[in-house]
Structures are given as C-alpha cells and as structure tokens.
Simulated assay, not measured.
Amino acid sequence: MASPIKKIIRTELTEEQKQQQTLESLLSEVALNKDSLQETLLLLKELHESGLLEALKDLLKAKEKVAKIAVDQALREPVTNLINNAMAAGGALTELNPEVTGKLVSGLANGLQKAEQGLEDNSKVKMFDLLKVLNDPDINRAIGFGLNLLKGVGEELKE
C-alpha cells in the first residue's frame, strides 16, 4: 500500500515566468483575433487622420464639464416639454387600434393626393357642389368620422 501524501509542494512561478505566460496568452489572443484587430487599427487610423480621435480625447478629458452642459441642456423647459409630449403621444398611441390607425394614415395619404389634384384643376367650389357631394358615400363617411372625432376631442377638452 502507498504511503499518504503529507507534504504538498507548490511550484511558485518567478516574475519573469509570469510575464512570459502573459505574453504567450496575449500572442495567442492576437493570433485568434487577427482580422478584428486589423479592422480596429484601421478604424483608429481613420479617426486619427480625420482629427476625431483627438477631439474624443479632449472630450474625455473634459467629461465633467461636458456632462454638466448636457444635463443643463436636458433640463431646459423646451427639452422637458418635448420629452413629456413624446411620452403622452406614446401613451395615446398604445390605446389606439393599429388597424384603424393604418386605415387613417393611408386615407390621409390618398386624400392629400386628391387634394393636390384639386389644386391643379383650380376649379371653384360652389354652394350647390357642397350639398351635392354630401350624397357621395366616401365624403359622407369622412364627414361623419370627422364629426365624431371632433366630438371625442371636445369631450376630453371638457375635463
């Protein structure tokens, strides 16, 4: 039977051996990532030649001043109004039926085309023409939609 191990001998690497292992590991990584490293170097070269690299370095040096300016600009009333309006619009859009919104947008595009054609014709609209077009089902549908839209807006404005 073998005798039990009573002493564990650890091999301590010298500082030079540690550096050698680090270099070998680094060279291995460079070899594995040759293409991406070459592209990174090309990118850095382009940034340097265009002057953007120096601008980025200066920007990083002045990061506290830049951050303060960015925060000051973001806290301006027009910017906060923009953010609040975007959030309100986003909230309203989540409540709308996407199919109806799609129909409305395509209808608006079609209506703008017809309006442009009407401008090119440069014909005068008479009172009798207005009464006559009320019998057109498309116009009647659009007027009904518009009136109901105005009713809904008015109800919300009342609150």
Rank of each mutant, 00 (worst) to 15 (best):
V133I: 14
L60D: 02
D35E: 13
E99P: 00
E46D: 08
L147Y: 02
E99M: 05
F145V: 06
V79M: 14
N81A: 06
A67L: 04
A62L: 12
E77V: 10
E64K: 13
Q117T: 09
I5D: 12
L108N: 08
E77A: 01
T22C: 08
E156V: 15
L112A: 02
L37T: 01
F128Y: 05
E54V: 12
E15V: 08
L147A: 11
A70N: 09
L47Y: 02
D58E: 09
E24T: 01
I83Y: 08
D58N: 07
K151G: 04
I139R: 04
T80V: 15
A92S: 07
D58G: 00
L26F: 15
E46H: 04
L44S: 02
K45Q: 11
L93Y: 06
K124D: 01
G152W: 06
A86F: 00
S3D: 04
N33F: 05
L56M: 05
L26C: 13
M127R: 13
G111W: 11
E49M: 07
I83S: 09
N110W: 07
F128Q: 10
Q73M: 08
A55Y: 07
L41P: 02
Q19A: 12
L47V: 01
L44I: 07
M87T: 09
I69W: 00
H48I: 03
N84P: 00
Q117P: 00
K158R: 10
G102I: 01
A92T: 07
K7C: 09
Q19R: 15
V105F: 15
T11W: 12
L75Q: 12
R141D: 07
P4M: 10
